[in-house]
């Protein structure tokens, strides 16, 4: 079984979000980039577990992005994986990202494509299902548990108000969230090994973006908190009713 793990790079969760050029450009100044947590903690570790157990023969990591994405791919390789692929394209449109990955993957014979539930920067959660459609594969989203036995995959995934257990055959695209695996920390051996692992750069396929970000806006700042005495919960209830109008 060959596994492809889709990796996006995102600003660190504690980054200060700011925009320049009249709120049209995200300012990356002072921002540290990390592997999208869903990709790092869940899908990548799951792929490594499958390789360690002998179920998988190869684990490839892929990203769509410019050269700036390479340090993050090296970090991912330090956790494990046999090779990394960077498709040299802009990553601002989800369709473009998915179509680039699908275009590369269609000739590679991957049995399992893993991605994260969503990227924590643009919060789309769309790339996985798009790849599945473009490769004509099944898609199981919001997985919290993934088991592979031979050609059969069992996934426990979140649905509205509960969870569902699904079974299907390979190949399949799965988007992973909490529960799929336990986060790992790269060790010195992994970091050393990552230096010599291949990081292939693939030219972008001729695919056009179907959307673009025009501008950004910061959310309105809160008015400031109104403190209410712990002995006067009646007042809080009144305010929630007459001022906030939520009850």
């Amino acid at each position: 079984m060959k596994i492809l793990v889709c990796i996006s790079q995102v600003p660190d969760t504690t980054s200060k979000i700011a925009f320049s050029d009249n709120n049209t450009i995200f300012s990356s100044q002072g921002v540290t980039y990390i592997i999208n947590p869903y990709d790092e903690w869940y899908s990548l570790v799951k792929a490594l577990e499958l390789k360690e157990s002998g179920a998988a023969t190869a684990v490839h990591l892929i990203t769509v992005g410019k050269a700036e994405a390479e340090p993050v791919m090296r970090k991912a390789l330090a956790l494990g994986g046999d090779e990394a692929i960077r498709i040299d394209a802009d990553s601002s449109d989800t369709y473009l990202v998915a179509a680039q990955i699908a275009d590369y993957a269609k000739t590679q014979g991957y049995d399992l494509v893993l991605c994260g539930k969503e990227s924590i920067d643009y919060n789309n959660g769309s790339v996985g299902a798009m790849i599945a459609e473009l490769l004509d594969m099944n898609f199981l989203g919001f997985a919290g548990k993934v088991d592979v036995a031979g050609n059969s995959v069992t996934v426990v995934r979140e649905i509205d108000g509960g969870e569902e257990t699904n079974v299907c055959s390979l190949p399949v695209v799965i988007s992973c969230q909490k529960g799929v695996a336990e986060p790992r920390i790269p060790n010195m051996r992994g970091i050393m090994a990552a230096r010599t692992k291949p990081l292939k750069v693939v030219p972008a396929a001729a695919i056009s973006a179907l959307s673009n970000i025009v501008s950004y806006e910061m959310p309105p700042t809160k008015q400031g908190v109104k403190m209410i005495s712990a002995d006067n919960m009646e007042e809080l209830v009144q305010l929630l009713h007459s001022e906030a109008k939520v009850i």
């Binding site: 979000i17 925009f19 643009y122 959307s211 673009n212 970000i213 025009v214 501008s215 950004y216 959310p219």
Partner: peptide
């Protein structure tokens, strides 16, 4: 976007 820290206008 950015997990609620901002909004984006997407065309």
């Amino acid at each position: 976007v950015f997990s609620g820290k901002a909004f984006a206008f997407v065309n």
